[in-house]
Design a protein around this nucleic acid. Structure first.
Length: 826
RNA sequence: GCCGCUGUGGUGGAAUGGUAGACACGGGGGACUUAAAAUCCCCCGCCCGUUCUUUACGGGCGUGCUGGUUCAAGUCCAGCCAGCGGCACCA
């Protein structure tokens, strides 16, 4: 029999699947819906890389498994086609993004088809198509109509390399998430979406989601909820008040100063002279200096504290103490009230500041070490739990109790008010880039924004522009758009020239897969005239996505935006399920020599040569065999031969040991009892392993079974067909081939997933181990129905066991059925 | 600093509290072959002892470290150490 030829076999089955249209499902008629998809890729000029395969291959295996279990599995694929990667590729190649993106999508579909995944191409989506982005713009209009979209001037993150502003989520360590360039702050008027209105829901719903704990923790962390109190202090000698947010009001008797963020209005007034002060010059100079610093420079300063005294003092409500008011850039304008009350004895940063500017330190908490001395060294700063001292009516209380007492006191006296703060900021959605969905806004001659009426959607992206980024929107240079706006709205009206963050496009794409129409030759999105982005019946039936698979790097970006948009769309009345993704799985990361693969490092592994040599089944099997799916691993090609050997051995088993001709359909299944029990055990194991995404052990179970089957003289046709079905989710092409070869009817992917018989799992003899004082001293074989009494007898009769029992008394003996006998002697 | 995760042979990795190292890779030895490839069979954690010293048996140690619970711990508990990921001058 000839060798297994993956290229020919895989092409054969891909063609058959496509011709039979078995993967396109009727969303309306499906009875047992199961919706799963991966995070859609962005089309660039490159081929699919190992990361794609590692994500898509196992995800497809899970989809196939579910299908065989009787679900109507909907597994679509689409393209995150707007955005920087596509635009940058266009800039580099000089080809307009609309053309290059379309070309790249075409190539990519070809590559995806070569993988052999069961995607339903009749329900695809592409965020750069006008039929898609009209809905992105519609979403903006909905947000605007419900008061969730607003324009505001403020300091924003700007990436000098990408030439656009970025959302908080897209700046990491002060650098751009896409290109690692240091981000600068710029005061600009930008569009925001009010994600902060949904913080509590975003937090609360996390408990209901079947997501990795790690991801939920990251989101909680990112949202950064803190409960504390805003305390208002009067400023001595003027009519001003300063409100400080603190989570530790219990230490307020130890407060010795106040620090303001440079952006704080009080600091600005001192610097401008609106509030008279001897220190005006120093404050103005300090504010000027901090303004010039980049985020990175600030970080490089480390913990060294800088600052300027304002010349004013605030009065502590509790004891009348005067607290000098300082300005320092370690206080952030965007958190709390932008003003901090300094308690240097019990906060390390405050201590460092106090030391730098010789401000007194007061101890108000004694920790478990009992140290009551003056705090003069950073190690002595007591931030942990302890007992109150020097704090009037709080003395001798544990800090948690003191906190409650003082908060009640401050509220009663109207000195303060309990508040909850969050770190999450509103989502900045404006981008000064060309390749995105235009924000559907126009400005009247006075500069007031107005929405573009729905009937003008899609609000087409102009094509008469230089799409290279310059820092202002390239679209501003479009004569066509200017003309269009004046024609529709009147003379002097101007367009908004920014596009939306691509995370807007991807915040609702799972709904767009459902909304795609499959009645045309090429898929189309639902028309705008239908009033809602998705048919409510389909949404109710299919959402939320049962299993969503993609990288963990999206935890605080796409995955938080999509949750927000789901909630908003539900509130607007368009959908039923506010959480779009019930179950989320992150594949691990495949590294190369320990480093993340990236083009700039030049360590990207291309799957192509392996796929060409071994086939797509072998390549994806190998990735799955490397280790648990969620853990990823370091790339090495040394083991791929082992998986190739496995595939070849499977083929040889069928071609050499399967009875041919008529015998194939006769009942010749006098399968050896040992083989039968192994077969049932394998069905059980493979089922359980795929369910928990341990594809690696599912495959090793199939290898073990193969080892057993190879030792038989004949491969029983029933066993052969069962083996083919077990193989189907993991090696879809090979499975079809051996299914057909062993006389199976139709496609193996259309077969029912095999069940197992628990009574068949028990082998005819079992091995029982004997331990004496916890150490293995022997073993014996017995029938599975051995009684406890017999087991103990056999155990004691073992030669080596007897040696260890000699001259000793048995104090305790126990039998763990089917496993071991444990004897304790003294 | 805070949150989350991980730590097992030469390597990737297996192990509902019950024989640690399944399944592979790699290596060693052998068979087949004129030869090679392919294929097939056997062996491979460390140390020690006994034995016909190419065989077999026995003992001790061994899952990052130190303790604890248990007849029994890679697994459970406490305290560390190291690495990875996220957040971070967040009051």
């Amino acid at each position: 029999m000839s060798q297994y030829d993956p290229a020919a076999v895989e092409a054969k089955w891909q063609k058959k699947w496509e011709e039979a249209k078995i993967f396109s499902i009727d969303l309306k008629k499906a009875k047992n819906p199961y919706y799963t998809h991966v995070m859609w890729p962005y089309p660039s000029g490159d081929k699919l890389h190992v990361g794609h395969w590692y994500n898509f291959g196992p995800a497809d295996s899970l989809a196939r498994f579910k299908r065989m279990q009787g679900f109507d599995v909907f597994s679509p694929m689409g393209f995150d086609a707007f955005g920087l990667p596509a635009e940058n590729y266009a800039i580099k190649s000089g080809i307009p993004p609309a053309k290059s993106t379309a070309d790249n999508v075409k190539t990519m579909i070809g590559q995806l088809k070569r993988m052999g995944c069961m995607y339903d191409w009749t329900h695809s989506a592409n965020s750069s198509h006008p039929e898609y982005y009209q809905w992105t713009q519609w979403l903006f209009l909905q947000m605007f109509a419900h008061g969730l979209a607003y324009k505001q001037e403020g300091n924003v993150n700007f990436c000098p390399s990408c030439q656009t502003v970025l959302a908080n989520e897209q700046c990491q360590d002060g650098t751009c998430e896409r290109c690692d360039t240091v981000v600068v702050q710029k005061p600009l008027a930008q569009w925001y979406w009010k994600i902060t209105d949904f913080v509590e829901r975003l937090l609360k719903n996390l408990d209901t989601l079947d997501w990795p704990e790690k991801t939920k923790a990251m989101q909680r962390n990112w949202i950064g909820k803190k409960e504390g109190i805003d305390i208002t202090y009067l400023v001595d000698g003027c009519n001003e008040r300063i409100v400080c947010f603190t989570t530790r009001p219990d230490t307020n008797f130890g407060a010795t100063f106040i620090v303001l963020a440079p952006e704080h209005p009080f600091a600005q007034k001192v610097a401008s002279g609106a509030l008279p002060s001897k220190e005006k010059g120093a404050v103005a100079a300090y504010l000027e200096a901090t303004k010039k610093k980049t985020e990175l420079e600030r970080q490089e300063e480390g913990r060294k504290k800088t600052g300027a005294f304002t010349g004013y003092e605030a009065i502590n409500n509790l004891n009348g103490a005067k607290m000098p008011i300082w300005v320092s850039d370690f206080v952030l304008a965007g958190f709390g009230t932008g003003a901090v009350v300094g308690v240097p004895g019990h906060d390390l940063r405050d201590f460092e500041f106090a030391q730098e500017f010789r401000i007194p330190v007061i101890r108000v908490v004694v920790g478990p070490d009992g140290d009551t001395s003056f705090i003069t060294r950073p190690e002595q700063v007591q931030e942990e739990a302890g007992t109150m001292v020097n704090s009037s009516f709080l003395d001798s209380l544990p800090i948690m109790e003191a906190k409650e007492r003082i908060m009640n006191f401050l509220e009663e006296k109207k000195y303060g008010k309990r508040v909850t703060t969050y770190r999450l900021r509103d989502w900045l959605i404006s981008r000064q880039r060309y390749w995105g969905a235009l924000i559907p806004i126009v400005y009247d001659p006075e500069g007031n924004p107005h929405t573009v009426p729905e009937k003008h959607l899609p609000w087409l992206l102009p094509t008469d522009v230089e799409f290279k980024p310059t820092g202002t929107s390239p679209i501003a240079g479009s004569p066509e758009l200017k003309k269009r706006v004046e024609k529709i709205f009147g003379k002097g009206w101007t367009p908004e020239c920014d596009t939306m963050d691509t995370f807007v496009c991807s915040s609702y794409y799972s709904l767009m897969y459902l909304a795609a129409q499959n009645d045309a030759k090429e898929y189309r999105q639902r028309p705008l005239s239908s009033g809602a982005l998705v048919d409510p019946k389909l949404e109710e039936k299919w959402m939320p996505v049962d299993c969503y698979i993609g990288g963990a790097e999206h935890a605080c970006m796409h995955l938080i935006y999509a949750r927000f948009v789901g909630m908003a769309l539900k509130d607007f009345g368009f959908i039923q399920h506010e959480e779009q993704y019930q179950r989320l799985i992150h594949q691990g990361v495949i590294t190369n020599k320990g480093a993340k693969m990236s083009k700039s490092k030049g360590n990207v592994v291309s799957p192509d040569s392996f796929v060409e040599k071994y086939g797509s089944d072998v390549f994806r099997l190998y990735l799955m065999f490397m280790g648990p799916f969620t853990e990823g691993g370091d790339w090495s090609d040394t083991g791929i031969k082992g998986v190739d050997r496995f595939v070849q051995r499977v083929w040889r088993l069928y071609s050499e040991k399967l009875p041919s001709g008529r015998k194939l359909n006769k009942k010749v299944d006098q399968v050896d009892a040992q083989v039968t029990s192994k077969l049932h055990a394998t069905v059980k194991k493979v089922t359980e392993d795929i369910e928990r995404l341990h594809f690696n052990t599912a495959l090793s179970a199939l290898m073990e079974l193969l080892n057993v089957l190879e030792k038989q003289d004949v491969l029983a046709p029933d066993a052969a067909r069962t083996y083919a079905t077990l193989l189907a989710p993991l090696a879809p092409h090979l499975a079809e081939e051996v299914w057909e070869y062993s006389g199976g009817k139709g496609f193996v992917i259309d077969q029912d997933w095999p069940g197992y018989d628990a009574s068949q799992l028990v082998a005819s003899t079992i091995t029982i181990v004997v331990q004496v004082n916890g150490k293995v001293r022997g073993e014996f074989t017995a029938s599975p129905d051995i009684t406890e009494k017999e087991a103990l007898e056999f155990a004691k009769a073992e030669e080596n066991v007897q040696r260890h029992l000699e001259g000793k008394k048995i104090k305790k003996e126990m039998y763990i059925p089917g496993r071991l006998v444990s004897l304790v002697v003294a």
